[in-house]
Design a protein around this nucleic acid. Sequence first.
RNA 1: GCCGGUGUGGCGGAAUGGUAGACGCAGGGGAUUCAAAAUCCCCCGAUGGUGACAUCGUGCCGGUUCGAGUCCGGCCACCGGUACCA
Length: 851
Amino acid sequence: MPYTPAEIEAKWQAAWANAETFKAVRDLSKPKYYVLEMFPYPSGRIHIGHVRNYTMGDVIARYKLSTGHNVLHPMGFDAFGMPAENAAMASGGHPKDWTYKNIDDMVEQMKPLGLGIDWSRMFATCDPEYYGQQQALFIDMLDAGLIDRKNATVNWDPVDMTVLANEQVIDGKGWRSGAEVERKELTQWFFKISDMADELLDALDGLDDWPAKVRLMQENWIGKSRGLQFAFSMVEGVGAHDRVEVYTTRPDTLMGASFVGISPDHPLAKELEANNPEIAAFTAECRKGGTTAEALEKAEKLGLDTGLRVRHPFDTSWELPVYIANFIMMDYGTGAIFGCPAHDQRDFDFATKYGLPITPTFLPSEDASEELTEAFVPNKTDMVHWVKPFAWDAATNGEDAIEKAVDFCEANGVGQGVTKFRLRDWGLSRQRYWGAPIPVVHCDSCGVVPEKKENLPVELPYDVSFDIPGNPLDRHPTWRNVPCPACGNPATRETDTMDTFVDSSWYFARFTSPHADTPTNAEDAAYWMNVDQYIGGIEHAILHLLYSRFFARAMQKTGHLPEAAIEPFNALFTQGMVTHAIYKTDGADGRPVYHYPEEVELRDGGGFLKDGTQVTIVPSAKMSKSKNNVVDPIEIIKQYGADTARWFVLSDSPPERDVEWTASGAEASYKHLARVAALSEKIDQMDRDAAGSGDEDLLRAMHKTIQDVTGGVESFGFNAAIAKLYGFTAALSKSKAGYEAKREAILTLAQLMAPMTPHLAEEIWHTQGGEGLIANAPWPVADEAMLVEDTVTLPIQINGKRKSEIAVPKDMPKDEVEKLALADEAVIKALDGASPKKLIVVPGRIVNVVI
RNA sequence: GCCGGUGUGGCGGAAUGGUAGACGCAGGGGAUUCAAAAUCCCCCGAUGGUGACAUCGUGCCGGUUCGAGUCCGGCCACCGGUACCA
């Protein structure tokens, strides 16, 4: 019988559905295991990256099921966000219709993959049932003092009169209007995540099963620093300002100060611009462009001498100029700095440009020149020679000097040592329609009033249009005008909606009881939380994961999660992205036009469209709908079946690494699976009583494979595990063993393959008379006794280069191995009568003869 | 700019500080076949050599070590994030 995936895959998917194999039901008699992949955005088509992500999660889920766990493996959709509104603007539909249609399409594409998912728990974040509970959470968090209102800077398109997302700002201009973007302040809602900065930082230490790189990125993002906060007194005050408060992490360089810089958004700058047109023009110039850190940091360093002078705290006759500078950010520290050009490259560039003094406070060594061509910025732990120490020895390192500088300044009343964080509060307000409405009402007499819980969800109105730029909720009087929940007088709803990161910051908790009439159900949350294994892209290493950690704490404080769940993800695996080349040409309006891979023919080292136009190839980029470089896995599934697609995405590369997608090789996966299917048939047709030879060798190979594959699955080494399965399949295929041994081998092979190619595995299990479903069969265990090798082959190195090898019994004592090694022909030849300088024997590993 | 990561044959990649290139793809050769498809077997880093073999070789430069793809320092290129893309 040939391998017919279309047939067997449908058959076994129906069998799992009938048996409710993957339905998760609370059961205290078994250890639970919650495996979760980051849920998808419903773009409408699954892409190969989804297949990779969900297959990995499914391997873990199915493996854990077979090791006796009660597994929760859910799926949902992160369904709010801009693309739905963009689609509505582009083609006139409605974001809701577009989104739900896409969800239906994607579910239909995912089901044939045969994922072991409890589909009964599925939800989308745009379901009123979900976001209504999110609104309840918001109200509880507001009550608990975890939410704040304050000003924030947004990208403002002065032509369309709308707020723009960073993605909508291209080269400092609005994507639709082309107008130069300005930064503007708006009153916004904030989660007070910075109050938890220290806790979120400390708790990283306990996340042993997270990748070190993610913990490090979060640590750097939170950015705890110890520094000195102090004031420069102004020679002549301006309005209420008679001093400039600065924060520095390098108080040890205070004697190298050459200017004071303030942010264009600093209160002093604002005071000055009110009365000085030149300063107003400059700060207006600084406010052009987007709000991203990247844009701010990469912009040309601009400064303007305000004419104001301040006094150095150590020497009142030493006056420093005050500059307004565009690279100083108002939301870090105090929005003002002192510049020490000798030890900060940014300050160095600035000082060079504006002719300010560059005075080193320390040098690499005693005899080094004081003339600098660039800033001297050694590691804080490096020993340096101080030319201007003020409370420490000339020879010490930066770390020590900083500590002593803080102590000295505190003792002399110059300032205080303070701890600051880079982490800012999380602004959640979005001036957009397609998001969860923020459930508050603005009342003239009562102020900001939360909606009553019994009125939740505050549902989005359906009758909106997107023909005018801006938020349609602002223009919807019947939705907007409501009585005040407190006094009953006419009032207006908040029209801002929530950041979509809010939606994805607690969905994992909601999966434990997706239809509860409170955000979570205490018993379900206590049983299923935490997520034992979370799997997703490295691009979420900071924001999503940090916000989720914050939310879990906030939900614990408001009684929605148990204390044990404040770190919601026990283990994290960050898988790499699937990338693909981007093909683009220049459009008539000068903007790039992106072409789908299937439209491009590759020849003569270039890419060409059907009409012969050559395209520009960007070699490797994250698959993204807007760039048209998304590869569709549906064709592979149709042609070869889901098992082939699953096997292939697991085998082609290590899961944490990015892969450049190429479909060559999918056919080879199919051929291999067909070979395994044929092998099972062949074994089934053997004479039941036939004795063979080499039974033990086959079983030894089998136990070794059990060990290797189990280790591979547990450590996400899927590609290496699959390589071992190839090897074992070849060994089984060649083996002359008898029926019983071969049957045991093929059953075990099917079990080891089952998490990856579940349909084929069920088919083989069934053919060979295995009991029940392979999905429920206990995972095979390697017999230690079968793993022990009697003899080992030791490579012999001469001066670290392999020259020969010897086979020795496993437990041979070191001195005997030495004797054997020295008797080796290659060693005798190399020694040429001399005796070795050194002889290294690592038992069971290697011999190295040093000559 | 800043933070994090990655770099190994023609390609995807393997390798607890211990035989670099497992396994797979592509390619080459052979068996089978009237022929082909399918299948099976063998070869496959570079250079030199008929060959046994020798030398070189894990982005670049340097270091630690008996021994470095792996550890350390510096650089280059690419990828991700950079707080309103999700």
